[in-house]
């Protein structure tokens, strides 16, 4: 359900772009989706394929779904590590003074249009 909300916002932005650039059809859309964005790929793709049928320019749009690895930075030892594998605690020095660098965003990268 969360996925549907994001899909709707993505589609709204692409449809506006298509109108602005006077595009005939949006053929492909590339999204970069963070590993810890809370998006479940299967749900997202289903919601996307349902929602594009109700659009003007994206009826046959192919979705390129790129997963972006989540990386956390440790403020104490200044190293980075894989968030999904180790969580909040740094595997190098066991500090908890860490923050997420990448992996939370849902990013619209580009579209192919004609």
């Amino acid at each position: 359900m969360h996925e549907l909300g994001i899909v709707m916002h993505v589609i709204k932005q692409i449809e506006e772009l298509a109108k602005e650039k006077q595009v005939h059809e949006v053929k492909e859309l590339t999204l970069e989706i963070g590993e810890v964005s809370g998006v479940v790929k299967e749900y997202f793709v289903d919601a996307f394929n349902w929602a594009i049928k109700r659009t003007e320019h994206m009826q046959n749009c192919k979705l390129n779904y790129i997963t972006i690895q989540a990386i956390t930075y440790c403020e104490d030892c200044k190293q980075t590590y894989e968030t999904v594998k180790y969580g909040k605690e740094c595997p190098h020095c066991h500090s908890k003074k860490t923050y997420l660098v990448t992996g939370r965003d849902v990013y619209i990268k580009d579209v192919k249009v004609d």
């Binding site: 994001i6 916002h9 993505v10 932005q13 692409i14 772009l17 650039k21 595009v23 999204l31 965003d105 849902v106 990013y107 619209i108 990268k109 580009d110 579209v111 192919k112 249009v113 004609d114």
Partner: peptide, 9 residues
């Protein structure tokens, strides 16, 4: 053609 968007959802 490709249009680069680079924008958060």
């Amino acid at each position: 053609k490709t249009i680069v968007v680079n924008r958060s959802a």
